[in-house]
Amino acid sequence: MATRTQTIDDDAPQTMMNRLQAGFRPRPRRAHRLEQTAGPGSGARHELSADLLVIGRGSSADLRVESDDVSRMHARLQRLDDEYSIEDLDSRNGVFLNGLRVHAAVLRDGDTLQLGDTVFTYTEGA
């Protein structure tokens, strides 16, 4: 009795499409985060979701820090192309990125930001 064998053409367009559809999954998004590691309120974690937010001591700041070393409107965090940047808003004590005083910087995973006596560690989202 004759047997029939079925061959699968791996490169056939339909087979490739099925394989891609089976293997492709949108990756879960992970939020960008700031964790406060020094200064008043140390230990606080902030998930960043807004495109624009202000860090400061003032009541209108989005991320408030109760420290006299921090200006009312100290620095601005801005998201562009899913990257966050920080910009000094002419604060009294400046913004230090990994120890270097900067006017602005695109943030990278593990960066430390010092605003007066307040220190944050930035975790990059994905």
């Binding site: 940047s85 910009e87 000094d88 990125l97 120890g99 270097l100 005083r101 900067v102 006017h103 602005a104 910087a105 695109v106």
Partner: peptide, 13 residues
């Protein structure tokens, strides 16, 4: 002297 590594995306004033 303050020394640092130049890094993309950093602005100094």
């Amino acid at each position: 002297l303050e020394v640092f590594g130049a890094r993309e995306g950093v602005t100094l004033r």
